[in-house]
Computed example of a mutant assay.
Amino acid sequence: MTTMAPETDVRRHELAAFLRSRRERITPEQVGLPRGARRRTPGLRREEVASLAAVGVTWYTWLEQAREIQVSPQVLDAIARALLLDSSERTHLFSLAGASDPAPNADCPSVTPSLRLMLEQLDPIPACVMNSRYDILAYNVTYGRLLCDMDALSPADRNCMWLAFCNEEFRSSLVDITEANRTMAAKFRASMASHLAEPAWKALLKRLETTSPEFREVWAKHEIVDQGSRVKYIRNPHVGLMHLEHTNLWLGPSSGPRLVSYVPLNADSRMRLEQLYALAPVAA
């Protein structure tokens, strides 16, 4: 006679396996954590996920061990964000936990294949996908050469706040770097209001304050600016000066992941973008 495991037991074990699989696929750099020289665990450690989600390490470990514990929708929401789940994965998480999603339309930071295809087809218009922390999640060929050599950077350094205050190539491309950085810091402060307790945000803020005296001075002014379109002059070392409009296309219902594009405002700028795109090496 075969005995069937109760449905709740099956759900708990499926949930545990799902959490482990998602934790192991995320690199520390994706969530603003240092890799360290002696890391053996593929992806994130359990204690890192617990810290990112602001839950106890023991409690999260029990969850991955399929123990019979109660989990609230709010905690599941925090775990979903810590593990960078996309909308389908988020729905699956709440389904396995037998809970109702408190934010079913929550932003997801993942970049889908169709979104990557859109970025490619926008060339030579520079475009990227960026989250509210200014991490650059994906970009097309022209954006990768617009402000600096994006391909040469480590994933941890592909963050516009870090580049604007700490990368000389990026800084030299912005004609009015002082005003641009004042505006960026003000936008970053406005965005951070919803993420004050999140380790990845705090780690980036600490890194900026430790490295850049300019950032410390600007940050101390407590200025706030909302996200919106901006006209920029960018001087690229390969093709020269361009007059572009920076535009955000939101990928969710609130200020979070967005498609950022730089549209040329005159024929000369358009021609220079085409030249910049043509300079990219041909893929083998």
Rank of each mutant, 00 (worst) to 15 (best):
L33M: 10
R25D: 04
A53E: 09
E64V: 11
V31D: 07
V55C: 12
P42K: 10
G43I: 12
R46A: 07
V75T: 06
S72G: 05
S72D: 04
A37H: 13
T41K: 06
Q74M: 09
R46Q: 14
V49F: 03
L63D: 01
R67N: 11
L33H: 06
R38C: 06
E48V: 03
P28I: 08
T41M: 10
L63G: 14
R25P: 03
Q30W: 13
L63V: 06
E47M: 02
V49I: 04
P42Y: 12
A66D: 05
S51V: 03
V31I: 14
R35Q: 12
V71A: 07
L52M: 14
A37W: 12
I69G: 00
V55Q: 00
V31W: 01
R35G: 02
W59H: 00
P28F: 13
E68I: 00
Q65E: 10
E68Y: 01
G32I: 04
T61I: 03
T61Q: 06
T58K: 10
A53S: 15
I69F: 01
T58H: 03
E68W: 02
V57Q: 01
I26H: 05
E48T: 06
G36C: 07
R40M: 10
R40Q: 15
T27A: 15
Q30A: 15
G56E: 06
E29Q: 14
I26W: 04
Q30I: 00
Y60C: 08
Q74Y: 10
V75W: 08
Q30Y: 02
V49D: 00
T61R: 09
A54T: 13
W59A: 06
T61V: 13
R40W: 07
L44V: 06
R35C: 08
W62H: 12
R38P: 02
P42L: 12
G32W: 02
R40T: 14
A54F: 00
G56K: 07
T27L: 03
A50Q: 03
P73R: 04
G32Q: 01
P28R: 12
W59N: 11
I26T: 08
R25G: 04
W62T: 08
V75S: 03
W59Y: 15
Y60A: 11
A53V: 09
A66Q: 06
R46S: 04
V55M: 00
R38H: 15
L44K: 01
A37C: 05
V57I: 15
Q65R: 14
E68F: 00
A37Q: 13
V71H: 05
G43N: 08
V31M: 11
G56T: 08
T41Q: 15
P28S: 10
R39L: 14
R25L: 14
R67L: 02
P34M: 05
V55A: 01
E47G: 04
V55H: 00
Q74V: 12
Y60P: 10
L44C: 07
T58G: 08
R39K: 15
T61H: 10
R38Q: 12
